[in-house]
Amino acid sequence: MPTAVKLQKEYGDAIQVIFVEVQGHSMDEVLPFALKRKWLGSGVAWTTERPFRVDLNGIPNYALISPDGEVVSWGYSNQDHKKVVELIEGFVKSKPQREDLPKPLVKVYKEFDKGEFAKAWKEADKVEAKYAEDAQVLRFLGDARREVRETVERRSQRISWLVENGYPLLAEAQWKDLVKVVKGADELVALVADVTARIDTDEFADMKKAARSLVKMEQALYESGGKDGEKLAKKLRKFAEDHAGTPLAARATQLADIAAKVGSVRA
């Protein structure tokens, strides 16, 4: 466990560690347990829902999935630690591999893989103009455009989720990043229009202001490992009362519950 938390901290957003509790405990038990050990706030994802199984009896065990979604290794976490680190290191350093890609589309995907969606779109426009009579290239180009559109839509939907669930600061940061990389491609800008409209409101500005104090409490909770949990829980409940009926209140209540339970977690 601690080594995987360390990996997440070391590689940051370049990798994702997901911890799946498989001994039948609920998130109400798992999160105070992780808080006490100062594992929360590390970027690691926590769940009790098992996405798949590996053919092993003991825990901890793992599966490593490549950036394009393929299982590349599984086994016991402690035994395979070195192997996992080497594989992750390789993925982080390497560029996406795209086999069987028609040459005219190379530049399109080069920009797409960098997250430069508008540039990818403009490259696609050039290819479309140059290969207007080539049905095969146009078919692949259609796939490329769909992939770009779906990626922008997915990111836009995720930002909407963040707004609806009380993460306005994160939503704004991700929205700014997205706006930057779709600028200049009207069709892509249009896909972000809904979320832009939600962010450009007085209500959103108020939510951001309130969220700043919630984030401070959340960070204090994570950094302290739940020390003075009852005291923090009280502050968080007061925040929830003051912002009753908002998604921020729901977040504060969840954090208060975690803080309140940390005292009963065994060392």
Binding site: F19, V20, S42, A63, L64, I88, L162
Partner: peptide
């Protein structure tokens, strides 16, 4: 129920483009 710690992520596909280490553990 989503993933605690990564707000807005709801599926394995959300992490496409980066390696994902799924660690099965117990408390």
């Amino acid at each position: 129920d989503g993933l605690y710690g990564v707000p807005g992520a709801t599926s394995l596909a959300d992490f496409r483009g980066k390696p994902v280490l799924v660690d099965f553990w117990g408390t």
